[in-house]
C-alpha cells in the first residue's frame, strides 16, 4: 500500500517533471539542440524513488499532459502532442521510469555512479527510444532505420543527462536522505 509519504513523493516528482519543462532549456555549446531536463527527471524518478513510485510519478505527469496542462517543454501539452510524431518519447516515460527503478533496485542500490549511469541509460534512454522510435516511424510514415537515425541527434544530450542523474542520485544517496526501499 502507498503511504502518505509515497503519495507525496510521487506527486512532487511528477511536479518536478512539469517544473523542469517550465525552465528555459540549458544551452550546451557543443550540441545542436538545447537540452531540456525533463527526461533527466524521468531517470531521477526511477533511480531515487524506485520502480513503483517512479513509474507512478511519470504516469501522473503524462496523465496531466493528456488532460491539457501545458507541461511539456515549450508550454506544449494536450492529447494532440501525445499522438504526434514525438508523442511516443513522452508516452514511454512511465515505462522508462519503471525500468530504471526496477534495475536500480536490483543492481544500483548503492552510491556507485557507474552503476547508476548504466541503469539510467537502459531505462531512461533505451526503453524510451524503444517506444519512441517505432512511434515516430509509424506516425511519420518513415522506415524505422530512418526514424532511429534521426533520433540519434538527441543521444549525446541524453547520455549527458544519464551522467548528471548518476552523479545527483549518488550524492543524494550518500547524504542518506532517501533510501531506495523506503
Amino acid at each position: 500500500m502507498l503511504s502518505t509519504r509515497d503519495l507525496v513523493l510521487c506527486a512532487l516528482f511528477a511536479a518536478l517533471l512539469g517544473g523542469l519543462g517550465m525552465a528555459p532549456p540549458i544551452p550546451l555549446g557543443f550540441l545542436p539542440v538545447p537540452i531540456t531536463a525533463q527526461t533527466l527527471g524521468v531517470m531521477l524518478a526511477g533511480t531515487i524513488l524506485g520502480a513503483r513510485r517512479g513509474g507512478l510519478a511519470a504516469l501522473l505527469f503524462v496523465l496531466l499532459v493528456a488532460a491539457g496542462l501545458p507541461l511539456l517543454a515549450g508550454g506544449r501539452g494536450g492529447i494532440g502532442v501525445l499522438m504526434g510524431p514525438t508523442g511516443g518519447f513522452v508516452l514511454a516515460w512511465p515505462l522508462g521510469a519503471v525500468i530504471t527503478g526496477w534495475l536500480a533496485e536490483r543492481f544500483a542500490s548503492g552510491t556507485s555512479p557507474v552503476r547508476l549511469f548504466a541503469v539510467s541509460v537502459v531505462g531512461g534512454i533505451l526503453a524510451v527510444y524503444a517506444v519512441g522510435i517505432p512511434w515516430l516511424a509509424l506516425v511519420a510514415g518513415l522506415p524505422i532505420e530512418k526514424a532511429a537515425l534521426g533520433t540519434m541527434a538527441f543521444l549525446p544530450g541524453d547520455l549527458i543527462k544519464a551522467g548528471v542523474c548518476a552523479f545527483a542520485a549518488a550524492a543524494v544517496r550518500r547524504a542518506g536522505i532517501l533510501p531506495l526501499h523506503a
Binding site: 503519495l7 507525496v8 510521487c10 506527486a11 512532487l12 511528477a14 511536479a15 518536478l16 512539469g18 517544473g19 523542469l20 517550465m22 525552465a23 507512478l56 501522473l60 505527469f61 496523465l63 496531466l64 496542462l69 507541461l71
Partner: peptide, 18 residues
Amino acid sequence: LMLALTIRFVPLLGDLVR
C-alpha cells in the same frame, strides 16, 4: 489526491528550479 497535489506543486517546483 496525487493528481491534485501534482497540479498544486507544478508552479512551486517551477519556481524552485528557477
